[in-house]
Simulated scan of single mutants.
Amino acid sequence: MNKPIFLGVELAELLNGVRQICREEISELLQKGITQAKHDDEFMDMDQASVFLKKAKQTLYALCSSNSIPHFSKSGQNYFKKQDLIEWIESGRKSKKKEAQPNRLLFTNKHKI
């Protein structure tokens, strides 16, 4: 039986080559994902969090003292996890104008302005 040949390479060899390339690419992507996850789990001190959030350190101290921001305290120092801060920021997301407009219409119909 004749085996199909593509550019001088048998089909089985071509498939094995494609599989190997896929394995290598997937392995590289997984490694990058693991590295990124490790960076998100690292702790930041007050200076690093201040730069990351673009907020003054005094503002962060006030947020920490009122427990308004996720943080850890040890020996009088405050520490933050990057992923916790990202989630904290995203939790304050406001609705878009198109989403908020129906609520405004209900309000104006109910309370004639």
Rank of each mutant, 00 (worst) to 15 (best):
K81S: 01
S66F: 10
D40N: 13
R104P: 05
K55I: 00
H111N: 09
K112V: 04
M1K: 04
T59E: 03
E24W: 02
K54T: 10
I26A: 12
I26W: 05
Q31V: 02
M1Y: 02
V18W: 09
Q48E: 15
V51Q: 06
S73Q: 15
H111L: 04
P102E: 10
T108K: 15
I89G: 03
S65I: 07
L106A: 09
E10F: 05
C64D: 06
L29D: 03
N67A: 09
S50L: 01
I86L: 10
K112C: 01
Y79M: 07
E42S: 14
G76N: 03
F52R: 08
L105K: 11
G76I: 04
P4G: 04
K94L: 11
E87H: 14
S95M: 15
D47G: 01
E13I: 02
I34F: 02
L60Q: 03
I113N: 14
T59K: 03
K82V: 05
G76C: 01
Q83P: 00
Q83L: 14
D41W: 06
Q36A: 15
K57N: 06
D45A: 05
C22E: 15
K112N: 10
H39L: 14
Y79T: 02
R23I: 11
K57M: 06
E13A: 13
S50E: 04
E25M: 09
M1P: 00
I69K: 07
V51I: 07
F52D: 05
P4R: 15
E90D: 11
K110D: 03
E28V: 03
C22G: 11
L53M: 10
Q31C: 04
H71N: 07
G76R: 05
M46V: 12
S50I: 03
T108R: 14
F80T: 01
F43A: 06
A12Y: 07
Y79C: 04
M46C: 04
A12Q: 09
F80G: 02
D40R: 12
E90S: 08
E25V: 02
T35W: 04
D41M: 14
F72M: 15
K98S: 14
E10G: 09
L15K: 15
K110C: 10
N67Y: 08
F52S: 02
H71E: 05
I21A: 15
I26T: 09
A100F: 00
E13S: 10
M46A: 04
C64G: 02
S75Y: 08
K112P: 09
M1R: 09
F107K: 11
K81L: 12
N109Y: 14
N16V: 04
T108Y: 12
